[in-house]
Amino acid sequence: MDNIAGHKSSLTWAVHISVALLVLLWLLPTLGLLVSSFRTADQIAGSGWWAAPFPQEESLQLRTAGPDEMTQEGDLYVIEGNLLEQNEAGELDISAWGTSARDVSAYAPGDTAEMRGGETMTLAADGTYRLSSAEAFEGRGERVFVSATVPPEFTLDNYERILFSDDSREGMAKAFFNTLTVTIPATIIPILIAAFAAYALAWMDFPGRALLVAAVVALLVVPLQLALIPLLRLHLSIGIGKGYMGVWLAHTAFGMPLAVYLLRNYMVGLPRDIIENAKVDGATDFQIFTRIVLPLSFPALASFAIFQFLWTWNDLLVALVFLIDASGQTTVMTRQIVELLGTRGGNWEILATAAFVSISVPLVVFFAMQRYLVRGLLAGSVK
Score class of each variant (00 low, 15 high):
residue 355 A to P: 03
residue 342 G to E: 06
residue 300 A to S: 15
residue 342 G to Y: 05
residue 278 A to D: 11
residue 341 L to R: 01
residue 324 I to V: 13
residue 270 L to T: 07
residue 280 V to N: 04
residue 333 M to Y: 01
residue 255 G to F: 01
residue 328 G to E: 01
residue 275 I to C: 05
residue 281 D to E: 12
residue 334 T to P: 03
residue 318 V to K: 08
residue 314 N to Y: 07
residue 339 E to V: 07
residue 290 T to E: 00
residue 340 L to C: 05
residue 350 I to P: 00
residue 299 P to E: 13
residue 335 R to I: 05
residue 328 G to S: 09
residue 307 F to L: 15
residue 277 N to W: 01
residue 256 M to T: 12
residue 309 F to T: 09
residue 354 A to D: 00
residue 273 D to W: 05
residue 340 L to N: 06
residue 354 A to S: 09
residue 291 R to L: 14
residue 293 V to D: 02
residue 311 W to K: 09
residue 316 L to N: 13
residue 323 L to F: 09
residue 296 L to H: 10
residue 301 L to Y: 10
residue 283 A to H: 11
residue 337 I to K: 01
residue 295 P to W: 03
residue 311 W to E: 03
residue 319 A to Y: 01
residue 274 I to V: 15
residue 267 M to A: 12
residue 294 L to A: 11
residue 297 S to F: 11
residue 282 G to H: 10
residue 291 R to K: 15
residue 322 F to G: 04
residue 288 I to A: 12
residue 329 Q to E: 15
residue 342 G to P: 06
residue 302 A to L: 12
residue 269 G to L: 10
residue 306 I to K: 00
residue 271 P to A: 14
residue 272 R to V: 13
residue 321 V to W: 06
residue 299 P to R: 10
residue 281 D to P: 09
residue 275 I to H: 04
residue 320 L to P: 07
residue 356 F to K: 02
residue 313 W to V: 02
residue 274 I to A: 15
residue 344 R to A: 15
residue 329 Q to K: 10
residue 298 F to I: 14
residue 324 I to Y: 08
residue 281 D to I: 10
residue 286 F to T: 14
residue 277 N to L: 10
residue 267 M to C: 13
residue 261 Y to C: 02
residue 299 P to Y: 08
residue 278 A to T: 02
residue 295 P to H: 09
residue 287 Q to A: 15
residue 264 R to N: 15
